[in-house]
Amino acid sequence: MIDQPERIELLQAMAATLTDTVVPASSGGPQHAARVVANLCRILAREAEAGATVARTLSGDLQELLGTEGNLKELVTALDAKLAEGDRAFEVAALPALRRNVEQRLDIAKPDYR
């Protein structure tokens, strides 16, 4: 069975309820917490929409860069270990993939930042 509303709609509704109902009715620390949670709901809604594509792109980029296979966590760990060697030529080769990933994650976390 397929339950409604879907995940993204639910997260957007949660964000709207916090912003429109809870924030105006609260103050100080609780109000700040409500704002933070509302923002997290919006981030998770965007992540539900685009997160899989971002992960797939990164995984492909890193497999090509590192010449190895593995799950995303293994690939990112291998990239970090390789960067820790301080090889400038490798950093230059890695930079386009890093920048692309940063921009894609930023579009999820804070789209108006760029």
Binding site: V36, N39, I43, L98, V102, L106, A109, K110, Y113
Partner: peptide, 27 residues
């Protein structure tokens, strides 16, 4: 919850960092 949300803010600093490196002549 603020600390939890910080995890999704690291990318802002990463973005700033790459721009700052570019502004100073790149890698």
């Amino acid at each position: 919850i603020v600390h939890a949300a910080s995890g999704r803010r690291v990318v802002e600093l990463e973005y700033d960092l790459l721009n700052l490196i570019d502004e100073q002549g790149g890698l």
